[in-house]
Every structure is written in structure tokens, then in C-alpha cells.
Design a protein around this nucleic acid. Structure first.
Lengths: 259, 259
DNA sequence: CGTCTGGTTGATACGACTCAAATTTGGTGG
DNA sequence: CCACCAAATTTGAGTCGTATCAACCAGACG
């Protein structure tokens, strides 16, 4: 496994943490729920940028939760090509129930330096027992993750390069906004054009040219690890982005994603 | 909703049913587990070929289980293009936990005439309560479905048309074989070239030419709604098919997929 | 100040798409 | 049993989006 630091002292979630914020996008959590959520972390682990958190073939033993940084879920082919099937940002669980399976069928790699919470499956069970609110919220997280990955399949199968990139930029901005990491169309952007290529099934060269088109059309600014979406409505329209698949407006807050 | 017949009389699963066979590919079920599984069906519904079982936007109220026929999970774009993100065959649950969400973000359509079991969420809860074996097996089903859909993303993003089709043919044959619907490389094949196009992100014309190449190379025979894989090992190699993502060999039987 | 990673540009090639038409298949009713 | 029709498959010719390969450039870092 890739080099990383495991800090075993329990460190409770800061109030207003990304996890709680994210889960509350769907269901209201009680103060007790939120406290319980903070108490289950058995350790914090740091993973350097471009290192793997878990690899295909590894046996998943604990549950990981991204606290800071970006990661990606990816698979590769014997000839070395790789496909990123999802990105993970603060508040995302990496492998909520993978311990049911005996081996990972994909890897999780750090894009930027990663701070992750490590949680034992037993602690997860104890957390959900008798807390239907949290159980539902975790189920919701799992289902939304699957829905996002399905939307990516649609992205790869049917959208043009221009639309694919537009769609991806919006999705990530919206997801960051939900956990408080995006404002006014702006967010941090640690992805290289190579990462974008692996996520969209394009070559890095073509990603480069397509991003230039998006800039030329006045839709985005993207430079120095910062994304700025200039015309949200138009970018949504041209990339045929429909936010329903993110399911973030049931009992929880409703987010005006356009702002 | 699309025309269909709902037969409300409970009809127990036939012994050696596809569901039980499928779940036992992963975990051993006790006689009690199997009986309980058969008892929860509150009705059987028939859906005609090319009709939808559930549509994007519908509120999922009950759980559906495919008993006979083929279905597909698909999404579409405002301009009419559609992407099939998975196929469902006998033994597959359509929407195991979708009732947690308030609206479907995709549709499920019948490829051939479909016989589905209808199960209420309450019956599902009652089934899993106190039956850890079944609970685990259902979790496994959910995780494998997600793994299959991720593999499809890899398929669309990184494989050539020739490999994509080869991969899809193998996957479906293997999945059918697990539930006893494939033998000696042969299985029923209700999909049109149009369906294959929507599943692989290609045009029907290109699917046609690529299938001809696969035939010319002596890898498959495909005619009159019947598939015959002639050289399993070679087809696996050229399409870079690695069966690990199907996770079918934990506590249950091991399938020699090559036979 | 050199090195490295990531970004940019140009020229060329090819895989897959488009449009249009012909042919085969399977189902239906006379 | 055959004629008919719609759906599915097949073929052909021309085009386009994206890949490939190969440089070159800019900023970050030691």
C-alpha cells in the first residue's frame, strides 16, 4: 500500500464539517446523530498527492471518509489505460460497504494531499443501530454515488467532448458547493488536464483544445488551480446538465445551484 | 406508466429459481432463507417488450425482481439520445433501495416480455430482519450491480468498439450462465443491434460492422436471437475481460466461466 | 539555474458517424 | 401456405471528431 500516515488518536469532526453538511443535504440529523457521527472516527490518515489510498485487489478492511483534499475512484486496463469513474471530495465515503466483498475491483487514488477518517466496519454498525436518520442518510449517500456513476456512463456514451467537460465541471462545482467549498461559481481545482482526460475518455491534447473552446465561448475561466464558471445557465444548457441525479433536495436544505 | 398486468395472488418462487441461484453465487442460504425469499412476493407483473417498467421521475414505491425476460436500465438526454447503463436478467433486482429516493433518475424498460415479482419495501425489511445471510446477499447484489456499472464506464471510456462489444457479450453470457440460462457458450439473445448501440455508445451501423468482424474472426456466432461464443478464451483476451468485478466466488459456488 | 511537470501548438491519421438505400427476417392475416 | 408489412440488418460513400506523434513553452521547485 502507498505511503501514508496513520494517526490513531480519535479526533471528533469539527462542527459544520463536510460530512454532516453533505448528509444534511438529504436528511435532517439530530444533535445526537451529529455527535455520534463525530465519535466513530478511529483515526485519521494522510495520503500524499498521486498516491493510492486503496488498490484494486486489496481487501477492504475499514471505511474511509474524505475530510480534506480530492481523490478519484479509477480502474485500469492491462495495457495501462485508466478510467476515472468518479471523483471524491470532502464528505464523501470511499467504500461504505465494500468490506462485504473480498477484494476491491477498483482503486482510490489521491489527486491532492488527502486527509481521510478511518472507521471500522463495527463502528459503522454501531453508528447505524438505532439511528434510522443516519442509516437513511448513509443509504442516500450510497445511492447518490451510484447515480453519479451512472450519469458518467451517459456522459461518456452520448455527450460530445465539449459537453462532457462542461458537464463534469458543473457537477464538481455543485458537489463542492453542497459541502461549502464553492461560492459564486468559483472553486479550487486540483485536477490536471490529464486527470480530466482519464475521467472523460478523451486524450489530454483534446481536453486542452476543448477547454480552450469553453474559455473562448465565455463559459469558464480555469487557471492556476482555480475554476470559475462564468455563465452557469448557459453551461448547463449546452452540456445538458440536469441536477436531478444528485438528489439533494428531499428533507434537507434545497440548494440553489445556480448561485 | 406503461401497460402491464398485475397479478396480486402470491406465487412462491419455484425451487432452483434464478434469484436463489444468483444470491447463492455469493453466499450460502439456509432452507429457511430460501423459503422466506419465496414468500415475500406480493404479486407478479407482466410488462410487454419495449414498454417501461418504471420511468425517470416516477416515485419508486415497490421493489421489482426480474423473474423472466430481459430489461435494461437507461437514461436519456433532452435531444433523444439514450444510454443503456446496464441490462437486467432473471434474478436481478431492479431497484432494491431506490424507494429511499423520491424520484427515479433513470428508467427501466423491457427488452423482451418481462415477468417481474413485485415486493413492498416493508416486506423487504421484514425479510432482512434477523436474517444476516440474506441481508449480506442483498448487499452483495447491490455492490455487484454498482461494480458492473463502473466496468461499463471503463468500457465506454477506454475500449475500442470491437473490445466493447466483445466485453459486453462475455459479461452477459457469464451473468446468464450464473443463473442457469447459458450453457456451452450459448444463450438466448433478445437484443437488437440498436440496443447494443445504445449500450456501447456506438451507432447501430457501426455495431453491425463490428459484429461482422467478430464473426469473421471466428469469435462468435450471433443470429436468430441466439448467441454462441465460439472461442471464449480468445474473446476474453482481445476484449480485456477480467471477471473479478462480478465478485461471484466468495462463499458460494465457484463458476468456471469458460465452460 | 537547470529540471520537471503540466500546458499548448501543429500536422497527419484513423475510427466511428452520417445519410441513404437495399435486403433480409419475422410476424400477421387472408 | 403465401402475400404483405414492419422491423431489423446490411451495404456503400463521404465526412468529421478525436487520436496520435512530436515539438515547444511556462511556471514551480530544489
Amino acid at each position: 500500500m502507498a505511503p501514508s500516515t496513520l494517526v490513531t488518536s480519535a479526533s471528533p469532526l469539527p462542527s459544520g464539517s463536510a460530512v454532516a453538511t453533505k448528509l444534511e443535504a438529504f436528511a435532517r440529523l439530530s444533535a445526537d446523530d451529529r455527535a455520534a457521527l463525530g465519535a466513530i472516527i478511529s483515526g485519521v490518515r494522510y495520503v500524499e498527492a498521486r498516491q493510492d489510498l486503496i488498490r484494486e485487489g486489496d481487501q477492504p478492511k475499514s471505511v474511509h471518509l474524505v475530510l480534506e483534499g480530492w481523490a478519484c475512484r479509477y480502474k485500469h486496463l492491462p495495457d495501462g489505460r485508466r478510467q476515472i469513474v468518479n471523483f471524491l471530495v470532502a464528505g464523501d465515503f470511499c467504500d461504505l460497504n465494500m468490506h462485504i466483498l473480498e477484494a476491491m475491483d477498483h482503486s482510490i487514488g489521491a489527486i491532492s494531499r488527502l486527509k481521510v477518517a478511518v472507521i471500522s466496519p463495527e463502528a459503522m454498525d454501531a453508528l447505524t443501530a438505532g439511528r434510522p436518520g443516519i442509516t437513511r442518510a448513509l443509504w442516500w449517500h450510497e445511492l447518490v454515488t451510484a447515480a453519479i456513476e451512472r450519469e458518467w456512463t451517459l456522459n461518456l456514451g452520448q455527450r460530445s467532448a465539449y459537453q462532457r467537460l462542461g458537464h463534469l465541471l458543473i457537477e464538481l462545482y455543485v458537489r463542492l458547493r453542497i459541502v461549502g467549498l464553492g461560492h459564486g461559481g468559483r472553486c479550487d481545482w486540483p485536477l490536471t488536464q490529464n486527470d480530466l482526460a482519464d475521467a472523460t475518455g478523451l486524450t489530454a491534447v483534446h481536453v486542452n483544445r476543448t477547454l480552450q473552446e469553453l474559455r473562448r465561448d465565455g463559459l469558464i475561466e480555469l487557471a492556476r488551480k482555480q475554476l470559475h464558471i462564468l455563465d452557469f445557465q448557459r453551461l448547463m444548457r449546452v452540456s445538458m446538465f440536469n441536477p436531478y441525479y444528485l438528489h439533494f433536495d428531499r428533507e434537507g436544505r434545497h440548494f440553489d445551484i445556480g448561485a
